[in-house]
Amino acid sequence: MIVEVKGDNKIDDPIVRAKEKAAYEIASASEMEYRIISGSRVINGNSSSIFDKI
């Protein structure tokens, strides 16, 4: 699994979204998962839930 943490103000940035799409495609081709989460989610201790769907 690849997890990318981005600042809350960057999550919806068009460039970040384009990079997210490319990273997802690369991860899928390598039989890995890719997820992007906000920095506040990590700071607040809510990042472990990304593993719930594995």
Rank of each mutant, 00 (worst) to 15 (best):
K21Q: 10
A29Y: 07
F51P: 00
G45F: 03
K6F: 03
A27G: 03
A23V: 07
R41M: 10
P14G: 14
E33D: 15
K10S: 08
E20Q: 02
V42R: 00
A18E: 14
I37K: 02
D12V: 01
D13I: 05
R35N: 01
I37Q: 00
S40K: 04
Y34S: 06
N46S: 14
I36M: 02
I15P: 02
S38T: 10
K21F: 06
K21C: 05
E25R: 12
I54L: 15
E33A: 14
I37P: 01
K10F: 06
M1Q: 08
I26R: 03
K21R: 11
A23T: 10
D52Y: 03
D8M: 08
S28V: 11
I43R: 10
E33T: 14
I26M: 03
N46T: 13
Y24P: 01
E25W: 10
E4T: 15
M32G: 10
A22K: 12
S49T: 13
I37A: 00
I2K: 06
E33Q: 14
A27D: 01
P14Y: 14
K6R: 07
R35L: 00
A29V: 05
V3Q: 02
I36R: 00
V42N: 02
M32L: 14
G39H: 06
S38R: 09
I15Y: 12
V16K: 04
I11K: 01
E20M: 02
M1W: 05
N9F: 13
R41Y: 04
Y34L: 09
S47G: 14
Y24N: 07
D52M: 02
K21H: 07
Y34F: 12
S28P: 06
I26S: 04
D13M: 05
E4C: 15
I15C: 10
V3H: 00
S38F: 03
Y24A: 09
V16I: 09
G7P: 06
E31P: 02
V5N: 04
E33K: 14
D8F: 07
D12I: 01
G45I: 03
F51Y: 07
G45D: 04
Y34C: 04
A27L: 02
E25V: 12
N44A: 08
Y24E: 10
K10R: 10
V5R: 06
I11F: 01
F51G: 02
N46M: 12
A23S: 10
G39Q: 08
K53H: 09
E20T: 03
Y24F: 09
N9A: 14
D52C: 03
A23G: 08
G7F: 05
K6S: 05
D12F: 02
E33S: 15
R41K: 11
V16H: 06
M32F: 12
A29F: 09
